[in-house]
């Protein structure tokens, strides 16, 4: 039996320890915000936080996260930080087909909580594992920039 917290709630599962966290989140806990774009760590659509670190849930065998704290996009949806990102992505026009977006938002939040005032190069690096085929990234970079400004002081709050 593997136990961990998922979006602040203690959960347990008897899925096999090599099962991918991605499948567990989507199938057993029916959280659909974490998407699968490649299944091999190359697109970032499946990004989640494990102990506050951005990770690709398609590469995580659940046996390795026993006792950790896992947060998906659903777990940050109600936060102040998410509201800022939501507004910024909207006004910068960062969303097209949307498939990369939850992962992008997770990467944005991870970046800003580590580095609340990132340069353009740092933003590009922060989302470099998140493939977006629609936007050409620039409007996403703008969105993160905007979120850094709008949410000044918010990012390092817990």
């Amino acid at each position: 039996m593997i136990k961990f917290t998922l979006n602040g709630r203690l959960v347990e599962t008897d899925a096999p320890p090599t099962a991918r966290l991605l499948d567990l989140i989507r199938d057993e806990f029916t959280l659909i915000g974490t998407k699968e774009g490649c299944g091999e760590g190359e697109c970032g659509a499946c990004s989640v936080f494990v102990n506050n670190h951005l990770q690709n849930s398609c590469l995580i065998p659940i046996g390795s996260i026993d006792g950790t704290d896992v947060i998906t996009i659903e777990g940050i949806m109600e936060s102040e930080q998410f509201k800022i990102l939501d507004e910024s992505y909207s006004s910068a026009g960062g969303v097209q087909c949307g498939y990369c977006i939850p992962g992008m938002v997770m990467a944005s939040a991870a970046l800003l909580s580590k580095n609340p005032h990132p340069s353009e190069a740092e933003i590009r690096e922060g989302i470099s594992g998140n493939l977006c085929r629609c936007t050409g990234y620039n409007m996403i970079v703008d969105a993160i920039n905007l979120a850094a400004k709008k949410g000044d002081g918010l990012w390092q709050k817990k």
């Binding site: 090599t18 991918r20 299944g39 091999e40 398609c58 995580i60 065998p61």
Partner: peptide, 28 residues
């Protein structure tokens, strides 16, 4: 042995929706 698993999980990857097929018991 699985450390970060970023190589192991890709090397033994199954197709979509199914856990990887890793030989032997695994040890994290």
């Amino acid at each position: 042995i699985i450390a970060g698993g970023t190589d192991v999980m890709v090397l033994h990857k199954s197709r979509r929706g199914v856990p990887p097929k890793i030989p032997n018991p695994v040890i994290f």
